[in-house]
């Protein structure tokens, strides 16, 4: 490490870059209809999240954040994508069906949501420890993630969307608090996510068994 000012400038730039790349991957996810590619995009997005954690750990000397980075890589970059990948292959479904809003419109909506996220995050910029608008990106990730969730029909994509929301929450935590939340909390959230995805995975399988489809709009047939 050289002079602290220069190194923190590099850190800030790297964090901004990774954050923006997370956002771009989110857009690509919104614009992607192949399920396997979507899963890979999500894995890449998580990798950038881990990258941000690693940058913070390295440049600010907060080494417990390394644990977060490693866990993110292990869980969200490797394990969960592998799990979802296997499920998609087992169910032999390659493609998402037509979303509620077509892609160009979705793109415009996402751009607007990003702007909205920026406006929402503006009052909090002073509180941020990272010194730039990472919180705005986190907000945008959460908002577009929720949008993605209701824009799609396949349960798998909805699980993926929910995971990106979680990525956004993680990013917000990193941006707002002192180098990440306490380790225990992070670990708790992390294992929650893993368990939840596994439960959801089983559920998706059940939905398909029952309705011979993964289309969640079919769930409407459940009402009496």
């Amino acid at each position: 490490m050289t002079a602290p000012a220069a190194s923190s400038a590099i850190a800030a730039q790297l964090i901004a870059l990774f954050a923006v790349l997370m956002l771009v991957l989110q857009l690509l996810l919104v614009g992607q209809r192949m399920l396997l590619t979507s899963i890979r995009l999500f894995a890449l997005q998580s990798l950038f999240l881990a990258g941000i954690a690693a940058v913070i750990a390295f440049f600010h000397g907060a080494f417990h954040v390394f644990v977060v980075a490693v866990l993110t890589v292990a869980g969200k970059v490797l394990f969960l994508p592998w799990l979802l990948d296997r499920q998609v292959r087992r169910m032999r479904i390659g493609q998402e069906i037509e979303p509620l809003l077509n892609f160009p419109t979705s793109m415009v909506v996402c751009a607007a949501l990003t702007l909205f996220g920026y406006i929402l995050a503006r009052p909090f910029t002073a509180l941020e420890r990272l010194g730039n608008n990472t919180l705005a990106v986190a907000m945008a990730l959460v908002l577009t993630g929720i949008f993605l969730m209701f824009n799609r029909r396949k349960a798998i994509t909805q699980v993926l969307a929910w995971l990106t929301v979680e990525n956004g929450v993680m990013l917000a935590a990193v941006a707002l608090t002192t180098y990440g939340m306490p380790l225990v909390v992070e670990l708790g959230i992390f294992f929650d996510v893993i368990v939840a995805v596994m439960v959801l995975g089983i559920l998706v399988y059940r939905i398909r068994d029952t309705f011979a489809s993964m289309d969640t709009s079919k769930l409407r047939q459940l009402k009496g």
Binding site: A16, V20, L23, V24, L27, L28, G31, N102, F103, P104, M107, V108, C110, A111, T114, L115, Y118, N132, N133, A136, V137
Partner: peptide, 21 residues
């Protein structure tokens, strides 16, 4: 148009990031 709309959205993000960062 899907592909080009992604290009448009990315360009919009580029514009936003002039004041985001």
């Amino acid at each position: 148009p899907d592909l080009l709309s992604i290009a448009f959205a990315v360009a919009l993000l580029a514009l936003f990031s002039t004041f985001l960062f």
